[in-house]
Design a protein around this nucleic acid. Structure first.
Lengths: 331, 331
DNA sequence: CTGAAAGCGCTTACAG
DNA sequence: CTGAAAGCGCTTACAG
């Protein structure tokens, strides 16, 4: 790999001049510049980002810390982050935590030391102290999907509204016994979905049906098992709301095995729609979140913070998106 | 952030001694070491990886270049890579190319300059010259899923066998008119699947049914549209093989809309099973590939290459996994 | 067993 | 308009 020095030698100038020419950081004589560019081309020189980063105290890299990619909305959000980050000259470093606070802590500690300028995280909530410390050290921290702390910027969705709207929608369809398959209540998205559900059910004076199976909740299997649990618990159930599509797919499978017709005997809807919803054998009614857009905005907020001079960093911002109802066959 | 210098000052030794103590690179007096460790702890010092990388010419980072994460088997493969890389002290940098050779080229050129020690790639095939150049420059390059070049290590699946086995399996079930929904033939996985399909169809003296719709092939929609195309083309069709699960889900949807019963009137199977296969309303028979394992092995091969001394780099290796038949309702 | 010095590849005041 | 020098935070021969 050619270095600045090699280019300088070939162009018969000092390395500092090459640096200036390449970064347009001060006027360089056109002839000199041409010579330099020719040398750059001949040696196919490209700057060493490590050296640049070390020198400038910036690495043009964002760390993305999420529970997992496989079969989650995070895969789509990450693509949005990636896309926007690349446009603005940033690389993206992805870490899966499997929602394990220990793995998350490890990742955070590794990232914070010189790897990155900022972090975008959907966290477990167990490492907020570290995150605040990272922020205090001058790095950018943006929360996505899960807002754990008011003191750090976030991009989320109005989950309570999702839960509320879903109940109202189903009630209008004539449903009276509406179950909610949810997830860990210590995570805002689940807690708030329940709050919305609870509010609507109370308003309509309906009886709640919820589960408390303890398991990896964002999964096909969880939706599947909860359905059987529900049917035992409340034989009159006429609607199931799943927090995420993955669960909803499991629900549809379980209902099929029980020969319960959707939507005739049971309405099903998801509060986190993916593209897959429209392609299922029974296409799924869902509140769809603008996942790619969430990623793009998170990248934007993060990069703006990074690039602001340290004396006037932008203040904390909380962006909240709304989901959009996609009415389909299941509900 | 504390630096080596800060630690050295606090412990009253030279920075070089601190470095040696921390890296166990030569004997340091126990007392000195204790003092150093105390200082490290007090300042919560952690090394700056950029400086380490610059100095050592290593960055303990692997670049992963893939078409996309969302709803593809790559999300699971990447988790395998991530997992293994983290275990061995490597970070992972993920780049989506959307199968666009231009984006791929951009990513490759960015990555090669100091960002990474090695690349794991499922490439478009249009930037093989760059890849070979990267390899020639001493970096590790490992191909996954798509083997484009014999001269670079690879981890793949025996796709031809998948295509062949699927046909034999369906023929045994009594199918005679078997269609194949595939993808771009310039990519090995699709080309070889077709070869296997072709071989089996020829052997059984059956008529081939294939599509040539030009579109983003690895998608729900592609499977959906191809199904309608197939039914027009060959009304006697009694089986559809989809190259990937995503397509297969689209197939099931299309068949449902046409009121064609699966598997009674039409067998459906996928050559790239995901976990979702078992949870569909009509669960899908599939050849499932060990995605996580593929990721782990790719990371292994890459890291071994990186860590080998430059005079004896391991020779090119081609790992080929076999898929496993999961028999379900659809076929 | 430990210190002083050089250097990885850059950028950026400081001169002129 | 351009060069010489310092320095980012480390590691590693070279002495002693």
């Amino acid at each position: 790999m050619a270095t600045l020095k090699d280019v300088a030698k070939l162009a018969c100038v000092d390395v500092s001049t090459v640096s200036r020419a390449l970064n347009n950081t001060s006027y360089v004589h056109p002839d000199t510049k041409a010579r330099i560019m020719a040398a750059v081309k001949e040696l196919s020189y490209a700057p060493n980002v490590l050296a640049q980063g070390l020198r400038q105290g910036k690495r043009h890299t964002i760390g993305v810390v999420i529970p997992r990619l496989y079969f989650t909305i995070f895969a789509e959000i990450v693509q949005g982050i990636e896309e926007e980050a690349r446009k603005r000259g940033y690389a993206t470093l992805i870490c899966n935590t499997e929602d394990d606070p220990k793995i998350e802590k490890e990742n955070l500690n590794k990232l914070r030391n010189g790897f990155i300028d900022g972090i975008i995280i959907a966290g477990t909530g167990h490492n907020n102290r570290i995150l605040k410390d990272i922020l205090a050290n001058g790095l950018a921290v943006t929360q996505i999907i899960r807002k754990q702390e008011d003191t750090m910027s976030s991009v989320t969705v109005d989950y309570a509204k999702c839960g509320y709207d879903a109940v109202i929608y189903l009630a209008k369809k004539g449903c009276r016994e509406i179950g909610l398959i949810n997830g860990p209540m210590n995570l805002a998205p689940y807690r708030e979905r329940y709050q919305g559900y609870h509010k609507a059910m109370t308003k309509l004076a309906l009886r709640e049906t919820t589960t408390s199976i303890d398991a990896q909740s964002n999964s096909l299997e969880y939706g599947y098992h909860c359905t059987f649990e529900f049917l035992k618990q409340n034989p009159n159930l006429d609607a199931i709301i799943a927090a995420v599509d993955t669960q909803g797919i499991g629900v549809l499978r379980a209902l099929k095995e029980c020969r319960i017709q959707v939507p005739e005997k049971m309405h099903v809807m998801s509060l986190t729609g993916y593209t897959i919803g429209s392609m299922l054998e029974t296409s799924m009614t869902a509140l769809e979140m603008p996942a790619r857009e969430i990623g793009i905005q998170a990248a934007n907020i993060t990069i703006e913070y990074i690039e602001a001079p340290s004396e006037k960093k932008p203040s904390v911002r909380h962006l909240v998106f709304n989901s959009i109802l996609a009415e389909r066959e299941s509900g």
